[in-house]
Design a protein around this nucleic acid. Structure first.
Ligand SMILES: [Mn+2]
Ligand SMILES: [Mn+2]
Ligand SMILES: [Mn+2]
Ligand SMILES: [Mn+2]
Lengths: 217, 217
DNA sequence: CAACAAATTTAGAGAAGTCTAAATTATTTT
DNA sequence: AAAATAATTTAGACTTCTCTAAATTTGTTG
């Protein structure tokens, strides 16, 4: 049985290891968690004692199979709760993360599985991220970043890379959300800005924005 | 902002103070929480420092207005979650307490209020206990224990005093639940047992059982 | 009212998680 | 390859919550 803190560390290690290959460094987790590197080292030792990570001094950690399973169980709960908050409790997609960060630690298999049934077995959360099923398997689309979409090729927004409130509310104002059809009309070489078609409106976005939107080509 | 532990203490103090008048004794909380009296003394000092209780050495504590409000906010969440688990997630009334014990600590006013709306502003939880509304006011029926119901007077089960799984499952087997019509047919002086009408069936219950069922006369 | 019993508090310590400051190891630069 | 820089770990300390064992206070009884 894990504590709230070890669960957050395992999740952070999982996320960092997904976005960059190889062992996970102390400082990368310190940044993610918002703790000092010395605290992270302490936790690495604790997780290693429980065989949830493989830890080599001065060389970071990697999750064991048990560690991966534990992380996925938490991610499963996190994303199911986010889905619930949006679909039934009138939360906007930029408001759910903070609350799901707490709800993901509730310990009750029955609760998790009944919530999943109640939501009718959703496969993706409000940000387009895949939800692990009961067997911890998740369905992943092949997706690309909007920046990588060829000019004039049609795509559909299926997720976001940056989950910050600022970015999500910016997309709300631009009326871009999951399911919105997207197409690049023109790439401006001068400042890397993009002229795009989003649903029925045309608008201009920066490179940074295009690097944080996932599309299905 | 309270910790999980201080919240549980405040709730325990509230419950004990409801069932017995005057200051709340150290040992009574120790029993309720499952901690040693010395730990309780420590916590009494901490709560007193935060002005949530009035504490006099060797004479127990009583909640301040702020302490009562904090306790009611937690009880509100506890009972709303219990209601949700039973009404939407297929939990039985004997299974909800343990999970609600965790969910009651989730910090999000919006979550609590939206959950209340989603459940259509329930006034009582699955055990018949009143749910404080947003203003922390709760509607209390005038209720009596089944043992106090006069012979042959009709009543309706509106709650239970003992919330243990054992008792609740026993009531399930006897097909007694919230809303079940109850009537005492005969009191046996010899062993204090009761012959009762419960819904459509007649059955025999002990004094102890009759002391743990609330009825509206 | 003195002696005993029960309740309560104090003293001291441990586990979990965090931090700062200092020491060590690894990496990059010159 | 040495020096400088960056990353990581260690040492020591603090907070919160808990415990055991001992001391103190309160209540009860002969
Ligand atoms: Mn979390
Ligand atoms: Mn998400
Ligand atoms: Mn609780
Ligand atoms: Mn209840």
């Amino acid at each position: 049985m894990q504590t709230l803190s070890t669960e957050d560390y395992l999740k952070a290690i999982y996320h960092v290891s997904q976005s960059s290959p190889g062992a996970v460094a102390t400082t990368s987790i310190a940044k993610q968690i918002g703790a000092k590197p010395s605290s992270v080292t302490d936790m690495f030792k604790k997780l290693s004692d429980q065989n949830l990570v493989k830890y080599q001094k001065y060389n970071g950690v990697s999750l064991t199979n048990e560690g991966i399973k534990t992380a996925l169980r938490i991610i499963r709960k996190h994303r199911l709760w986010e889905s619930f908050l949006v679909s039934h409790l009138n939360f906007n997609w930029d408001e759910v993360h903070q609350v799901a960060e707490q709800l993901e630690h509730i310990q009750s298999e029955k609760l998790t599985n009944e919530l999943e049934r109640f939501l009718d077995y959703p496969t993706h959360d409000p940000h387009g991220d895949p939800i692990p099923n009961r067997a911890l398997f998740m369905k992943t689309y092949n997706k690309i970043l909007l920046i990588e979409l060829p000019v004039n090729k049609e795509g559909v927004c299926i997720g976001v890379k940056d989950n910050s409130s600022d970015f999500l509310r910016y997309l709300d104002r631009r009326q871009i959300g999951i399911g919105t059809p997207l197409q690049i009309l023109h790439r401006e070489d001068f400042d890397d800005s993009l002229h795009i078609q989003a649903g029925k409106s045309t608008l201009m976005i920066t490179k940074k924005t295009a690097e944080n939107i996932y599309v299905k080509p």
